[in-house]
Write a protein that binds this DNA or RNA. Structure first.
Length: 572
DNA sequence: GCCGTTTTCGGCCCGACTGTTTTCAGTCG
């Protein structure tokens, strides 16, 4: 059984859940959660680290005990402490913790007093009115449990960033229109530009808190009100997304924004730094005893703990605080740094537009070049190009380039990587192109070893300029294929192959963690839209967001180079 | 269970809201 970092993390999380239900020392529980978080933010694979006999306790939150457990998971694929814990507390019972409003104490009470063992048991007990009879519970709790069970079963837990953007924009406008509102700002993982968002955190300043809260709970798209207080309200929108609204005072805005932007791990780390200086940080400000010393702006908050401003995208407690303290925060890439796009489809395969239309759109976006990369023949269902049609397209591009001014079309192709790692078109054709994006579109189920070898072999071909959407994942619908990304990263580095950061909101592939790893290995990244129609070209901003989360600077990304510089990077 | 530029023991981030209470526990972010 493969043991990815995420497997280790989820085992630690599950163990933490069980210990919590059992009433274990809360700090011990927290230690497991910290360990899980630390592990999932790691850019190295634990399997490799263990194999290389690295000292795992060098990573934050991993001590002797967790290091031993990680070794056990990597070596055996399971964790005996977790197996034993599951005997005591069943996974079905643990899963009840994921229902909003149910924590360890209540789950334990439901189990001990009512014999609840599963979601079905709970639903039945609540429907029969037994839950309300327990001390500490009541009719309201019982009803909300029933509602939550239905919601829990019906819907996805996290939403893609691009989906949430619409809700955020319309709701922000609605709130801004309310009288007495000065400022509306979305915080949370949305502001950190995380690829998926669990809920929307919105901050409001002004002088009529009651009315703003009222405006949210009465908003037409609200399905259910979870909480409605003086300074905080929570609602569920009709699409299932939870929105938390906070009213904050003007002079606490920076502290609140920092607090609610998170991540939680980053905030905890900042508060720990503050404690060293005998400061207390909360959402109202930074305090020295009773005295408030900062809070108006986020810059103030960071300054109070001796740090420069850290942009939201970096706030994951993945080394940004240390980097800030040492004055080596990256100067992150921005949308305006991009000189072109290197992955675009036309009508020739599964795109919607002509070369001319795309060229014009790219020029209007201020690009210097646009890489045309239609699919190849292996993807016959989307009209993939064989060598004849590709040769024709190359001619077309050359003719068009002769007429166009202000934009250059690059002759490219998104070449299928076949099952054995060979490329879908012969070398003599590929050599005529300016560059190739090579991608896996079939045979996702190969073993880890075979999939990895397949991709390495594809990169062996010097015509493979860019490895397209390297993991193949589709957020929320398809797992990445099983591939040793560490080896792929090293392989790309050794061969001078560029890795793509595909900007489609459901791909964002490479992800942030591997972008950072690639950067550390000196592997270059191409941020591409993978546009299939004109409107898709702008999706590239989501790629830029993800790149920023991956610590990438302009120099790490090939398509920040003007055309001549780019062409040099294409040669390998 | 983790951690340490006072420490290897004794700390460990902090506040709002809800429901069930009669002053607070549980949950959440």
């Amino acid at each position: 059984m493969p043991a990815h970092n995420s497997d280790v993390a989820s085992m630690f999380e599950e163990l933490a859940d069980i210990l919590e239900i059992e009433g274990a020392n809360p700090f011990r529980v927290r230690a497991y959660r910290n360990g899980a978080r630390s592990v999932s933010g790691l850019s190295h694979s634990l399997r490799d680290l263990v194999r290389q006999e690295e000292d795992l306790t060098q990573y934050p939150g991993i001590g002797h005990e967790l290091a031993t457990k990680i070794k056990e998971i990597v070596d055996t694929g399971s964790l005996s402490a977790l197996e034993e814990a599951r005997q005591r507390v069943s996974p079905d019972l643990v899963s009840l913790m994921h229902i909003q409003g149910l924590g360890p104490k209540r789950v334990k009470a439901l189990h001990d007093k009512l014999g609840v063992k599963s979601l079905a048991d709970l639903q039945q007990a609540a429907a029969q009115g037994k839950v309300a009879e327990l001390s500490g519970f009541g009719t309201k709790t019982q009803n909300s449990i029933l509602e939550e069970i239905e919601r829990f079963q019906g819907e996805e837990k996290r939403y893609k960033l691009a989906v949430v953007e619409d809700v955020a924009a319309t709701l922000s406008r609605h709130l801004e229109k309310q009288s007495g509102v000065q400022k509306v700002q979305v915080a949370g993982s949305f502001r950190r530009r995380k690829e998926t968002v669990g809920d929307l955190d919105i901050l409001v300043t002004g002088n009529r808190p009651d009315e703003v809260m009222q405006a949210l709970v009465n908003y037409e798209d609200v399905r259910q009100v979870l909480a409605h207080g003086q300074t905080k309200s929570s609602v569920i929108m009709k699409n299932g997304l939870q929105v938390d609204l906070r009213f904050v005072a003007q002079d606490s805005f920076g502290a609140a924004l920092h607090y609610f932007t998170g991540s939680k791990a980053h905030n905890i780390a900042v508060r720990r730094l503050a404690l060293d200086r005998e400061l207390k940080v909360n959402e109202y400000g930074v305090f020295h005893g009773e005295q408030k010393v900062a809070g108006k702006s986020e810059e103030e908050v960071y300054a109070s703990v001796g740090l420069p401003y850290i942009v939201p995208e970096l706030r994951e407690d993945r080394g940004e605080l240390e980097a800030a303290a040492q004055g080596r925060l990256p100067e992150l890439i921005q949308r305006k740094d991009l000189c072109g796009d290197l992955h675009v489809h036309t009508k020739a395969s599964d795109g919607k537009n002509t070369l001319q239309e795309l060229a014009q759109a790219a020029r209007d976006m201020g690009y210097e070049y646009l890489g045309i990369t239609d699919h190849t023949r292996n993807l016959s269902m989307v009209g993939g190009l064989g060598e004849d049609r590709l040769m024709e397209q190359m001619e077309e591009i050359e003719d068009l380039n002769a007429q166009l001014s202000g934009i250059t079309l690059l002759k490219g192709s998104e070449v299928d990587i076949l099952k054995d790692g060979s490329l879908d078109l012969p070398d003599w054709v590929l050599q005529k192109l300016d560059f190739c994006v090579c991608s896996v579109h079939t045979a996702f189920n190969l073993s880890r070893e075979k999939q990895t070898e397949r991709i390495l072999r594809a990169m062996d071909n010097s015509n493979c300029t860019i490895l397209g959407h390297p993991s193949g994942r589709l957020i929320g619908s398809r797992e990445a294929y099983d591939v040793d990304m560490e080896r792929v990263l090293h392989g790309a580095g050794e061969r001078g192959c560029i890795l793509e950061l595909n900007s489609q909101p459901d791909r964002l592939d490479l992800d942030d963690v591997y972008c950072k790893a690639a950067k550390e290995l000196g592997v270059k990244i191409a941020i591409s839209s993978d546009a299939h129609q004109l409107g898709n070209l702008e999706l590239i901003r989501f790629g830029v967001d993800q790149a920023r989360r991956g610590w990438l600077e302009a120099e790490d990304v090939v398509n920040t180079r003007p055309l001549e510089g780019l062409k040099k990077l294409f040669k390998r």
